[in-house]
Amino acid sequence: MSHRTLLIAFPKGRLGDELVPKLAGTSLALDAEALKSRVLRIPTATPGVSALLLKGADLPRYVAAGVAQLGIVGSDTLDEMDMDLLELADLGFGACRLSLCAQAGATMEMLRAKPHLRLATKFPKATEAWLTREDLTAELVPLSSSAELAPLLGLADAIVDLVQTGGTLRAHGLVETLVLGRSSARLVAARGAYLSEPERIRPLAERLIAAFRATP
């Protein structure tokens, strides 16, 4: 593949599961056979445009470095990583809340009153920003997955995590105590690629926006 091939980085996981069906039938539909395989670079229905399937936390790095020219990633990940890339559109899907969650019965006042509050989270930057705004201090327990277990097993008093339907929280006896922010899928672009070749990147970006906005 020549370096002139355009690469779009798509996230695996929750956002990816929503995204692939939205692209079906469009000029950027992902090759169904390749999707069934274990390959991570998937041709699209447009020659010269391929997709990379990446973990959300790695995706901004590929785009910021210009390896992929465009990408789709949750705004929660963007806010945590603060990479130098362009954010061309809020695609609207994948909407969820970044929330403080604690065991049922625990209120915000009870958490505030704790002399040594411990918060487990995959989002330390957003959590720190909220703590600063609220003039609170807490010990942050950084986790990379299954944060819901932390309050149950005594690793933390509460968690700051993404909540979409609340099903996982309920399954672990947790409740949403406070909404700290909101997240949704964003279309990102490599700064260099976009500014030096807008005639190549902008039409592709517009096709992606149209594909995602056309489907509910």
């Binding site: 470095a65 490599a190 700064r191 260099g192 500014l195 030096s196 807008p198």
Partner: peptide, 29 residues
């Protein structure tokens, strides 16, 4: 020659017209 109305790089320093040179496909100015 392109007009980039939203060029804000170095906004704390620049006060007037700004110029940036790119090559097609280059990752940085």
């Amino acid at each position: 020659l392109r007009v980039d109305l939203a060029d804000v790089a170095g906004l704390g320093f620049y006060t007037g017209p700004t110029l940036r040179l790119w090559a097609p496909g280059a990752q940085q100015e």
